[in-house]
Simulated assay, not measured.
Amino acid sequence: MRHADLEQAACVHRLAFARQQHSLEWLTATLAAHPRFLCYVAQVQGALAGYILWAQKSGFRAQAVLELDQIAVLPDRHGQGTGRALIDQSLPLVKAELAHQGAALKHIIVNTRADNYAQQLYRSALGAEVVATIADLYSADEVFMVARNTPL
């Protein structure tokens, strides 16, 4: 993701996360937090179709724990593989960035609403499994998933 992508990414954010506010400010702050946050976009026919935000957790470590902080795809792109492509294509770039920092990927964590169908994506793309549920955390129950010992 580049600064030039922020307006389009903010539109995706607004459509994907109706309860959240200040989309442009949220994404601008996240992009500015590089290298703690690693941000990528998906484009289809030259237009931004989605984005993914990865966060390094608990400091810069030799064995990095990443969080799939946020993934969003335009509603009309749902079910077309854009989310999966964002994960599959950005993860090697994230691993290369970690290697440049002298680190390797250890685990990936992700949390989402308990009723979010994206859990299936996180299971299939990352091998993530639910390890905890917190009742009524944001707008509903939230599940926390972990993909352990992710292959390099």
Rank of each mutant, 00 (worst) to 15 (best):
L27T: 05
K95H: 14
A49S: 03
Q120I: 10
S90C: 07
I87M: 03
V131P: 08
R148K: 10
P151E: 05
I52G: 05
K57H: 15
A29T: 14
Q8D: 15
H22Q: 05
R61A: 09
A10M: 00
A47Q: 06
H107N: 15
L126E: 01
R61S: 08
Q21K: 03
F37N: 07
G46D: 03
Q45R: 08
Y138G: 12
Y122C: 06
A18L: 11
E142S: 13
G81L: 01
K57R: 14
K95P: 12
V94Y: 02
A10T: 00
K106N: 08
L137I: 07
R77E: 07
A18M: 09
A85H: 00
N149P: 04
D5T: 05
A104K: 13
H3C: 07
L86I: 05
V12F: 02
R14S: 15
A47H: 05
A140M: 08
I71P: 01
A128F: 11
A135R: 15
F60K: 13
D115T: 13
T150G: 11
G102W: 01
E67D: 09
H100V: 06
L15F: 06
H22E: 13
Y122W: 04
E129D: 13
F17P: 06
P92F: 09
A33C: 09
E25Q: 11
A135G: 14
C39R: 06
A55S: 09
N116I: 00
H100C: 12
L6Y: 02
A104V: 14
R113L: 13
A72C: 10
L68P: 04
V44A: 07
Y138P: 06
R61I: 05
F37P: 05
I108G: 03
L152K: 09
D141Q: 03
S58W: 04
F37M: 10
Y117L: 13
G81A: 01
V12M: 05
P151I: 01
I87N: 01
A96Y: 12
F144G: 00
V94C: 02
V130H: 04
L121C: 12
V94R: 00
H78M: 04
L74H: 10
A16E: 00
V143Y: 02
L38A: 11
T112Y: 01
S139R: 07
N116P: 02
L86A: 02
E67V: 12
A140H: 08
H100R: 15
R2L: 11
V143H: 02
Q80E: 09
V44L: 09
R19V: 07
L31T: 10
S124T: 15
W26T: 13
A147D: 00
A132D: 12
L152R: 12
